[in-house]
Nucleic acid binder design. Sequence first.
RNA 1: UGUCCUGUGGUGUAAUUGGCAACACGUCUGAUUCUGGAUCAGAAGAGUUCAGGUUCGAGACCUGACAGGACAACCA
Length: 564
Amino acid sequence: MAGIDNNSNEQEVKTPKNFIHQQIIEDLAAGKNDGTVHTRFPPEPNGYLHIGHAKSICLNFGTALKFGGLTNLRFDDTNPTKEDVEYVDSIQEDVHWLGFDWGDRLYYASDYFEKLYDFAVTLIKRGKAYVDFQSQEIISEQRRTPTQPGIESPYRNTSQEENLQLFEKMRSGVFEEGECVLRAKIDMTSPNMHLRDPLLYRILKQTHHRTGDQWCIYPMYDFAHGQSDYWEGITHSICTLEFEIHRPLYEWFVNELADTNYRPRQIEFSRLNLSYTVMSKRRLLQLVKEGYVNGWDDPRMPTICGLRRRGYTPEAIRAFADMVGVTKVDGVTDVAVLEYCIREDLNKRVQRVMGVLNPLKVVITNYPEGVVEEVDAINNPEDESMGKRKVPFSRIIYLEKEDFMENPVNKFFRLAPGREVRLRYSYFIKCNEVIKNDQGEIVELHCTYDPETKGGNAPDGRKVKATLHWVSEANAVKADVRLYDRLFTDPDPAGHKDKDMLEFLNPDSLKVLKDCYIEPFVRNAKALDNFQFERLGYFNVDPDSESGKMVFNRTVSLKDSSKK
RNA sequence: UGUCCUGUGGUGUAAUUGGCAACACGUCUGAUUCUGGAUCAGAAGAGUUCAGGUUCGAGACCUGACAGGACAACCA
């Protein structure tokens, strides 16, 4: 697990204000909550965190930080059928990696099962909850539709004493799954469906990842969330727009529960949608389970761990979260914004190295055989402090195939017969001869170098129009490079049905390039994580792969790869 | 035919208590560069969904339309 980034305070200053901040400022001005702000990030441990959660994490932790408050991490684990410790662990790792810390405030909704049960008993005693023995279908029918009032259940007016006994029996396992549920008695005619006697508890004879077989009744989301917020002293419960219509119910429960003036306040914002990206947990799970990707942390996945393996930094993701802002408008953010964030971050901090993905052998005919000299290369032209490194140069080198054109088209400035170019940090070379095989394919170039141009400048002041990256054949590291592109070709893959979505899988999303050559420095510098191929783009050494393989981020830096 | 939410350049967001619509991404042009990257300079692109109203003045306030989204899981 990566360490915790303690620079979050700096970021807080830059965080643009949003409507949630405005509301908090108003609340503070009104003297609510004794001037404190306490938020929470409440994932259900039923999948891995993705970039959409990152927005929520940055919002919740960032908001608390901004107002000098705290943030809890709480697992909303009220449905044992979907949840697993694997997810609990990965979520903690990812939140930490993003640079946020919940201190000792790690909670589980399942910690509150006993208190929630007691509260349900209280509601029954107040005549505000009842056990309903009707089938799921009947209950659903009685709720009718949003445009017509619902019908009351025949069990709605069972006596409190009887309900108390029945609920106890539910808990002790007397009834089978689906036989009965506990419902709140609110208003079957409400235009808000969530107020038409919502379910509080259902029977689930399942083992829970934390409470084991201790319980066979489990609270519903609505019956757990607001109460958990209340018990934890959450002041602002920030969630996504789909819970907006739940708010009256959230407030109903909290009002029934509260014995002070304190009330947590639910505020909704629009979830992140990214073009070319599928974000629903259900669909991501499908991609994993059906083998369209190699796990939750496949670099093509929009998961935090996928982005991490791809070379994204926490800083870039936080910058992205700030950049997209917070509103209630549900729109689609262009992935180009995310890619911009990582490009900008990496550009400043990443070690530049040379490498060729598609090698073309070049013999420098006037360079002595058996000699290896080292040239000085700058590690990052934008940051002197990153220093220099030595790169071996010799008679036989590799260039990128596409850096040579036998019959150069207009505006092609790189190597061509008779043309002189610069090899980055070393010499000017001129192409004299093109060697082809029987099929007429170019297999080798013969060039001459100008010893006077060592270091990359000609004493006579003559200029070249291109600078090429290169590697020395004898010294280069041979590696397989995995090239990752977007998983989907459609800007809105999530806008289709699950099966249609799969039609837009990009067949080129993963390419394995054999026999790529990387300058030897890379082999000894894996700890750096990210590099930038001169002129080609970013890549990172993938710690999980067989040694020598690289993850290569085509989309991140090849801004111009699609155009001429 | 219901309730709630939301409508600002292609996209995401801004616009103190109403005061000539700003920023970022993207796009395009030019300069520069030892990455066709980065950088620098510049341009195009909305008159704020529409119609009324209040006002000296409205993206902001009011009314009414229209459009999009959410809600009818023993999911969260």
